[in-house]
Nucleic acid binder design. Structure first.
Length: 594
RNA sequence: GGGGGCGUAGCUCAAUUGGUUAGAGUCCCGGACUGUCGAUCCGGUGGUUGCGGGUUCGAGCCCCGUCGCUCCCGCCA
């Protein structure tokens, strides 16, 4: 007989009654009646009740077993009597009547409760992650992650995408986030950088003639955390295709993502092809480049109505080049005044000068700005925004960029507070046609809006002839329920177009050669047109697990300050290590240890 | 770097809004109990109220500072 187990703690059924079995697992719940002791023994697969009778020599030893100790028990499987069956457990029809016990590992008292609803403080959960991960929910999440990744691999492999590894120790990339640096022992004063993404390598693989590529790729960025953004490292399903159009990239990814979401969720999922929304339209209708399409509200531009109105506050904004955006909401005219006051306060809190509104109720229109409007203005607003009795229009007026943002946040807040977000639905969309360049207010000049490797729509001609701010890129995002899953692009594989694009963004050719030497050199020696994208694996698993924090789907995440509390990283290193790396410390506060 | 929230027993929380010796559940320790499944019952250990300073006759509560966690802004090609 196996020294540890003949069955897992999820295996035994009534059909096993009468046979002998050996089980190993963690002591979960203990119910000690003095005359009989019940223990729920738990492993990865389930829970089985074991029974220890008082005449056994080891009875008192078992009474002393603390929760989470690991034990091995041997005995006879017995069917439970009808009145003692536990219908909540798959193994609830049987119990193991124990004849031999071995304690494999006695547990100290724990800093966390593993049973019940309470999670405990996140700091403790992270410090004792190995305990936290014993919870059923965490086991489920981490297992889901494993299955999702396996499914992604299978789906891409079936489509003829080979998986490649790319270097972890590479060179610092000049654009983007801060790099994690690794000092070189052999080359004093020089550093490797951990890749922020395998971007350049996957493009070089296309130039190498591999045609297609994917990788479950670790990415490292030294940026601050968010609930949906783990500090330090995260994983992307990195994909690249040669000789592919944007539509072919979309088709491939829709197939994979739809397949993965359908495989691991019962929620309703948009059928492919997913809706495609030009960036400009997304900013107008949803006020964001990652719209949550579950919210049934579409923002409208009503600048024209107010330009011709007698409402000076809005008219003057429009005359100065600003806009007025209307947010129509159905059937909330009967909300109390406090609701509207709360929305106004919210808008002001996010940088709006105010939040005007009109209420269509019982055949009349009212609201703080009603008295400034002519009847034909009100009619125009109603028809342009599709509102009728019972509906409300909120208004935001500002320069275009802040007005879009504020209207978008108000839309989201309304959707959330009014319970307009349906559950059980995944709404996907592509946001396409991102601008190639944008005006950088801080620097006072034109810069890349997204990523300098994208092919401008219209190619060289567009760069030469159009206003840079009008040039669009073959640059796209895929968004699910307001969560950005991925950015991608059809890449710019033409050196001359790349030099021109960088010139517009203010960089001379030498800079391009210096920073992207490997890529430009490769592009001079026969490069296929290519493109791809890289959906975030952690975020996809987070959505599928219905978690709101990305840390819940990562086995060993760092905390918000990029520390691993369990392993105590980052940590100090020895003087010898520093000497070998030619590094001398210069700490911000000499009296404060790091 | 900035803003909001939180910080009381190992864990989850309370403390009549400034008033006697900071309580309860849980965990842990001891005891009772032969059918439980969040077992139950009795008893016990456990606190520099994150830390430092201030106001006050008196501070868990008010003020200032600081540290930690978390959410957000900046940042994330």
């Amino acid at each position: 007989m196996h020294p540890y187990r003949t069955h897992t703690c999820g295996d035994l059924r009534e059909a096993d009654a009468g046979s002998v079995a050996r089980l190993s697992g963690w002591v979960f719940h203990k119910r000690d009646h003095g005359g009989v002791l019940f223990i729920d023994l738990r492993d990865h697969y389930g829970v089985t009740q074991i029974v220890i009778h008082p005449e056994k020599s080891f009875f008192e030893e078992c009474q002393r077993w603390r929760s989470e100790s690991v034990v091995t028990v041997y005995g006879r499987v017995a069917a439970r009597t009808a009145d003692t069956v536990n219908a909540d457990l798959p193994t609830g029809g049987v119990e193991l009547v124990v004849d031999e016990v071995t304690i494999q590992s006695a547990a100290d008292p724990l800093p966390l409760h593993l049973a019940g609803e309470d999670e405990g403080p996140e700091e403790t959960r992270l410090r004792y992650r190995f305990l936290d991960l014993r919870r059923e929910r965490m086991q489920r999440n981490i297992l889901l992650r494993s299955r999702v990744i396996a499914s992604m691999r299978r789906r891409l492999t079936e489509k003829g995408f080979p998986e490649f590894q790319t270097p972890i120790l590479t060179s610092s990339s000049p654009e983007g986030a801060r790099d994690y640096l690794v000092p070189s022992r052999v080359h004093p004063g020089k550093f490797y950088a951990l890749p922020q993404a395998p971007q350049l390598f996957k493009q070089l693989l296309m130039v190498s003639g591999f045609d297609r590529y994917f990788q479950i790729a670790p990415c490292f960025r030294d940026e601050d955390a968010r609930a949906d953004r783990s500090p330090g490292e995260f994983y992307q399903l990195d994909i690249e295709m040669a000789f592919a159009t944007q539509d072919e990239v979309f088709e491939t990814v829709e197939d994979v993502l739809h397949g993965v979401f359908a495989e691991f969720s019962d929620w309703e999922i948009d059928a492919a092809p997913f809706v495609r929304i030009p960036y400009k339209e997304a900013m107008l209708k949803y006020g964001t480049d990652k719209p949550d399409l579950r919210i049934p509200i579409e923002i409208r531009d009503v600048s024209g109505v107010f330009a011709a109105s007698d409402f000076n506050a809005f008219r003057s904004v429009v005359e100065k080049g600003g806009v007025v955006r209307a947010i129509p909401v159905k059937g909330i005219a009967d909300r109390p005044r406090s609701f509207f006051d709360k929305m106004v306060a919210f808008a002001q809190g996010i940088g709006s000068k105010g939040l005007a509104y009109l209420v269509w109720q019982e055949g009349k229109v009212k609201g703080p700005i009603f008295k400034f409007l002519k009847p034909e203005d009100v009619d125009a607003l109603a028809s342009q925004c599709g509102v009728s009795d019972g509906d409300v229009l909120f208004f935001v007026s500002d320069k275009e960029k802040p007005a879009s943002r504020i209207a978008g946040e108000v839309r989201h807040k309304l959707g959330h507070d009014l319970g307009l977000i349906p559950s059980g639905v995944y709404k996907f969309c592509w946001v396409v046609d991102f601008p190639m360049f944008e005006y950088d207010e801080e620097l006072g000049r034109v810069g890349f809006s997204h990523n300098p490797f994208s092919m401008p729509q219209g190619g060289m001609q567009a760069l030469q002839e159009q206003d840079p701010l009008d040039v669009l890129a073959y640059q796209y995002d895929i968004v699910c329920n307001g969560c950005e899953l991925s950015s991608g692009a059809i890449r710019n594989h033409l050196p001359e177009v790349m030099y021109k694009a960088f010139e517009i963004a203010g960089y001379p050719p030498e800079t391009v050669d210096e920073r992207f030497g490997a890529l430009i050199r490769a592009f001079r020696m026969g490069a296929p047109p290519h493109g791809g994208l890289a959906p975030g694996v952690d975020r996809i698993v987070m959505l599928l697990a219905h978690e709101t924090s990305i840390r819940e789907v990562i086995a060993f995440p760092m905390n918000q300050r990029a520390q691993d509390l369990m392993m105590d990283a980052p940590s100090s290193v020895s003087e010898k290590q520093l000497r070998e790396l030619h590094i001398r410390m210069q700490l911000p506060h000499a009296d404060k240890p790091a």
